[in-house]
Amino acid sequence: MRGRRVQLTQGRETLLLLALMFLFAIWSDAFGAPRRQEAAPRQAPSGSAEGTERRLTEIYRVGPEDVLEITLANDPELPREYRISSSGHIFFPYLGSVAVAGKTTAEIERELHQLLQNGYFENPELTVAVKEYRSHYVYLLGDVGAVGPMILTRERVPLIEILARAGVRPTARRVTLTRWQDGRPTTVVVDLTTPEKYTTLVAPGDILEVQSPREYVFITGEVRTPQAIEYVPGLTLSQAIIHAGGPSEFAKRSRVQIKRRRADGRVEVFQANLDKIIRGQAPDVELHPNDTVYVPRRFW
């Protein structure tokens, strides 16, 4: 019976992961990497805030610490890599310091073309691309495989893409997104059980905390500190009782009861001999979320 429950649980987690991968594939197609025509993204209805946000999923504006790869066909001996300084500039031969932060690669390319055409080359042939993305990132906390900063390659990225890259755990149910605007934090809670919420757009500098509902195991009866213990996978009977301070001097350790509610609502009761478990004569019992452990009292 326990094996069947484990299989059902694993099946639900697998379905959730497959659904997440499917949604990510759809959004990857809709919001791909920045295109070459990033300086002129698709038009949206005038005055549409949603349209403005959507256009930001198609572009990347470079910033400090990004590394540009610039190729000038007219002078192939020039260096090709240029790191953007903290002030937002690069030092380019012929031109000296050039401000590039906040611009797309297409905009930088046009500007360099105009500057080089003014007294250096009649027809400059150059290309500009981002070689290393470093200036845009979000910070991830909570129930994800990759806690910490995550680099972004666009001005806005759908939440589904962030979660897929971070390795969100199947138990995750919501994301708290914090964004600083005008010196003040604003917080939005995204319900992950609602698929349409996965389209929420994430911006550089956002802080995302992925959260799972807390589950507990309840320790009652003849223990020194009866209490609810937060469940973690792999929690065993002996660990839970030790966490509750251990059995009292009146505990009947050979008849510990574990009550577990099944999916159909019925309650199963198991018995375990704590003395034998401690002596290594019986296997420890792995607990499930919402189990109730009752240590009875002995009367002799």
Rank of each mutant, 00 (worst) to 15 (best):
Q211M: 11
L237C: 06
A30N: 15
T178C: 05
A164E: 12
I70G: 04
F92E: 06
R165T: 13
P247A: 13
A272N: 01
V202Y: 02
E222G: 01
E69Q: 12
R12K: 14
F91N: 12
N118F: 07
Y82M: 06
I277S: 04
A40V: 11
P93V: 13
L112I: 03
T225I: 13
G32N: 15
Q37V: 05
Y137P: 06
T193D: 12
A272C: 02
T200R: 09
Y216W: 14
S28L: 11
M150Y: 03
R110F: 01
H288D: 10
F121L: 15
A172R: 00
E209W: 12
H288Q: 12
Y294F: 14
R297K: 14
P233W: 11
A146V: 07
E132S: 05
R260Y: 00
A282C: 03
S28K: 14
G167R: 10
M150F: 02
Q281R: 11
Y133E: 07
L8M: 06
P195Q: 11
A282S: 15
W300L: 09
R255I: 00
R42A: 10
V6C: 02
V6Q: 11
A272I: 00
D291F: 06
R35E: 07
N123T: 14
A25L: 12
D191G: 09
D275W: 01
A240W: 03
E111F: 01
E58Y: 03
D75E: 06
V210S: 02
E122F: 10
V100H: 04
T225W: 07
W300C: 04
E109F: 02
S85P: 01
I242Y: 08
S97V: 01
L141V: 08
D275R: 05
A49N: 12
R54C: 11
G88M: 03
A244I: 08
T186W: 08
V256I: 10
N74P: 10
P185E: 15
L78Y: 04
G246M: 06
T14K: 10
P185A: 14
Y60G: 11
L201H: 09
P170M: 04
V168K: 03
V100E: 04
R4H: 14
L116T: 05
G47R: 07
S46C: 01
H288T: 12
K131S: 13
P124H: 03
G183I: 02
T236A: 13
E209S: 09
T14H: 12
G119L: 08
T199S: 14
A33C: 09
A146S: 14
R110C: 00
Q281P: 00
E77N: 09
R298W: 12
G3L: 14
Y120K: 15
A101T: 03
E125C: 00
V232R: 13
I108S: 03
L116G: 02
T153G: 13
T176V: 13
Q181M: 07
L15V: 13
A244W: 07
A101V: 02
F22L: 11
V267H: 00
E50A: 15
A19Q: 07
R173T: 10
V138R: 06
Y120S: 09
Y216I: 04
G145N: 12
S85K: 02
E209M: 13
A99K: 11
L192P: 02
G145D: 10
L18V: 07
D284R: 02
A40Y: 05
E161H: 07
T292V: 04
L20F: 02
I162K: 04
Q257E: 14
R260L: 01
L274C: 05
Q114L: 09
V62H: 09
I258E: 05
D182S: 13
E230K: 11
A40F: 04
R80C: 00
